[in-house]
Design a protein around this nucleic acid. Structure first.
Lengths: 239, 239
DNA sequence: GTTAACTGCAAACGCTGTTCGCAGTTTACA
DNA sequence: TGTAAACTGCGAACAGCGTTTGCAGTTAAC
């Protein structure tokens, strides 16, 4: 199965041979279970195959590469974001709810952040999520570029905070026995950690960055002619 | 060379045998040149070795693992951030200058963002950079946790924007031929992309997120409605 | 002078993604 | 109905990876 088309438009099987013993969905599910339990490096073709009771090379009857499998896994996981939360409050509240749902997804599937920063083929569930986010941001009237960037920043922040605990545990170890002369501020900060910051940092970060990126600044912000164009282009027919 | 100590405190060579034909620094430089030219996957032990005129196994006289090499590469690159920009303006201006310097570094060494998302051993140059950032944020009076988080967010934003061009090129291709019925907002946004947003998005994003994370709350409007949103949006009780 | 430690190199181990050839099976078409 | 094409499943194989090991040669310490 070596096709130039992306996996989303490629048929799962032909019409000629015997009925396949497995399916793409079954393979993807097994791979996700493996990744959830033992991390992404454990998802090797042979490991997934043996989890399904077959051999490594047989998977290439269903997929054309491991990247295909990762793409399918990603989109399958992103599909768990549905149903999207009910629209409630202004666009910022709504966007925050979406981000929290995404954060929860990344905490359930920690391998998602490993797979996210790799050039991948975007699946339908991801497109749907992206489209929903764009719709949520429509009332801002911000340019398309800013919206795209804002959604990317949200995802980036989600990945950042989903790694929180691991990062904290990992970075605590090598931070012992530092020389106060060479690292004065760092040793001081570690010696007196101070109080935990008020409120949820995740929410604070997102609220501030989203308003900063998307909200209409006083008058020296977006160009006026551009605003009209964007307002026309973005106003959806059914919303 | 299999030692439990991190590579930073391990001596480069013993005192008994013949003088080594290479050095850690030479190896690291060759690896960085390779990564700059052909990307991180091209940095294999054998490839670095042949670039130095030796064989793969010989590198293990200088390093104990490929992860060690990546750690050394990272810290070597982060060392290029020095000298740090002169303090000028308030802490926000200063922090922005640091972020821009970091962004430039990530554009010169694109493999840095690939290597950053991997649990690594933090080297002295990275510690120094971190310490300098902490010192820059000292006037904010924010809690230590918030400062740490803010620095991480800055790095995350730098990585995000350093990938900008690649991401734009890669995501433009699969975004053709979408069904306007299933992705209304996305197709509308792509049909008329609108003007590029005025001002630098990188700077806007950083200014807003830094002020949001670090400036004293109290008059800024957040805190009350947020906690309820958190409880509502996540339905599995993971938190 | 002997011994221990070190360097450099080649070969090998186990793992990876992926390809290929070989049955055996099912469908399409003349 | 017969034949050919297409498909599935499987085992072996290939190239590449990180890493280990054994061996010869070199240097320094005692």
């Amino acid at each position: 199965m070596t096709d130039a088309q992306p996996i989303w438009t490629r048929p799962a099987r032909g019409s000629r041979g015997p009925t396949p013993g497995h399916s793409r969905d079954e393979i993807v599910r097994a791979a996700i279970a493996l990744a959830d339990a033992q991390g992404l490096p454990a998802v090797s073709m042979r490991a997934v195959a043996t989890a399904l009771g077959t051999t490594g090379g047989s998977l290439y009857r269903y997929l054309s590469s491991r990247d295909d499998l990762l793409d399918l896994m990603t989109d399958h996981a992103v599909g768990e974001l549905k149903p999207y939360p009910e629209p409630e409050g202004d666009w910022l509240d709504q966007m925050l709810r979406l981000a929290l749902r995404q954060l929860d997804l990344h905490r359930r599937h920690r391998w998602l952040s490993d797979v996210a920063q790799r050039p991948s083929s975007v699946g339908p569930a991801t497109l749907s999520w992206f489209d929903h986010c764009l719709g949520t941001l429509a009332p801002t009237g911000a340019p398309t570029t800013a919206k795209f960037e804002a959604i990317a920043v949200v995802t980036g922040t989600v990945i950042l905070f989903s790694r929180d605990r691991d990062a904290a545990a990992a970075s605590a170890t090598p931070f012992t026995g530092l020389d106060p002369a060479t690292y004065p501020h760092l040793t001081a900060a570690l010696a007196r950690p101070g109080p935990p910051p008020a409120g949820d940092l995740f929410e604070r970060a997102l609220r501030s960055v989203l308003t900063g990126l998307l909200e209409r600044p006083g008058r020296s912000g977006f160009g006026e002619s551009g605003e009209k164009l964007v307002a026309e282009a973005v106003h959806p027919p059914d919303r």
